[in-house]
Design a binder for these strands. Structure first.
Lengths: 224, 224
DNA sequence: GCAAATATTTTAGTTATACTAAAATTTGTA
DNA sequence: TACAAATTTTAGTATAACTAAAATATTTGC
């Protein structure tokens, strides 16, 4: 199993991300210019690299037509993403970094080569399904949840979503949620956002309407 | 604070190690040929690199006279060693690798750049003083235990000591030690030395008595 | 003390990776 | 179909690390 250079791995990651953009489950052809923007290089450099990646069987590359990942290439990309997100969980859960400090370190750690390391790290962390930013973590086979977890505070008026988790799991907080009828699994719709205090008006399970403060909304994960 | 390339960091590590060899606390001049052997390159390559490291203020380099580390250079070397050994502790203590499997992974992890990461990892591991091979771990200031490691072969009848490390870290050797029950941390007493083949009779953990060959005894570090 | 042996440095390259400007080509579209 | 935009090719650049061979310095043996 060939190992890729640091740069090649980054290209794979970027091509994967770009190919999944917009359309949720679908895969789209990624263009040279697009990759050049994302890697902050020139299209000429990208053409160069695409030839290399195609030669290694990682992308389907038809000149002037853009690229898609091969099965092999997608696996490679997902592994890098898996490693990045697992390390982020490690940094936040175990080393107590905050979620906005971990990206640069994870960018380095994701390139460490050892399948056994990844397997054991995953186990050590309890096989997490989401990273600290709410992004799903691929499992060893490359499978993952298809949606991103988002804090309720970030939803827009009219958005509909499921309540899937909380950041603060203290009994007090959970008890409060129970009291206002906002349990995990609830289906909600954001009906208004109050500018003044950033509180939200939401309709729960197509029924009752309640108001929650921005502090509460900032502790609730949703999935749309 | 300049960051060094992967290769530069490895040179620093090797120069540090070679400069401390034989004489315990003392520092010796390290020669070009010596470094070439240790890095598995040619002397010409080493001369090249030495000029680079000297220009960065990391080594005292007088042509044809060998090199020593500057204060700055020693700090850099000690940081790499610190990171390597901390990651080894992580891999063994947290991810349950065995001590003969971790070297190659730690070789990669030691080059991740983030002082905060090292500080937090150290804390997470409980500020360990020795790595799984028994080598002392420098603290944030570069200080570490200087307790002299002595080859078991050099101990005298009646000496009691702790087994704290090995010279030969090959999986084969480590596996053999495990098999005969002579693990790091064991407390032993030398009960006899057999003249004929220079093998040793030792009592392990105040219990079982075993015989080990001079080859084995010449590969085991102890601390009294 | 000096010549020979050894060690080291310099010279003049090589290889590999990744990048780029400019020219050439292809594609999509008006 | 012609032109603009996108892409690829060409012909380089930069950097890092390495090397053989030649030149130079140091050490050693006599």
């Amino acid at each position: 199993m060939q190992t890729l250079s640091f740069t090649e791995e980054n290209y794979m990651k970027i091509i994967y991300r770009a190919s999944k953009l917009s359309s949720p489950g679908k895969t789209k052809e990624v263009t040279t210019n697009e990759i050049a923007e994302l890697t902050d290089t020139k299209p000429a450099s990208v053409s160069d690299m695409l030839k290399k990646l195609a030669a290694k069987g990682l992308i389907n590359y038809v000149k002037y037509q853009g690229v898609t990942l091969t099965t092999d290439g997608e696996a490679k990309a997902l592994l890098v993403i898996r490693k990045h997100r697992l390390w982020e969980v490690f940094l936040v859960d175990k080393l107590n970094f905050s979620w906005d400090e971990v990206h640069d370190i994870a960018e380095q750690l994701e390139h460490v080569q050892s399948d056994e390391l990844v397997r054991r790290l995953d186990q050590f962390l309890g096989f997490p399904e989401y990273d600290p930013h709410g992004d799903p973590i691929p499992n060893e086979k490359g499978e993952m949840n298809s949606k991103k977890k988002v804090y309720l505070i970030n939803m827009k008026i009219g958005d509909k979503c499921d309540v899937v988790g909380v950041k603060d799991t203290s009994p007090l907080f959970l008890k409060y949620l129970d009291k206002i009828g906002l349990t995990i699994g609830a289906y909600i719709e954001i009906t208004d956002k109050i500018e003044f205090d950033q509180s939200l008006e939401i309709k729960v399970n197509n029924g009752r309407t309640i108001i929650i403060s921005k502090e509460i909304a900032n502790n609730i994960y949703t999935l749309d």
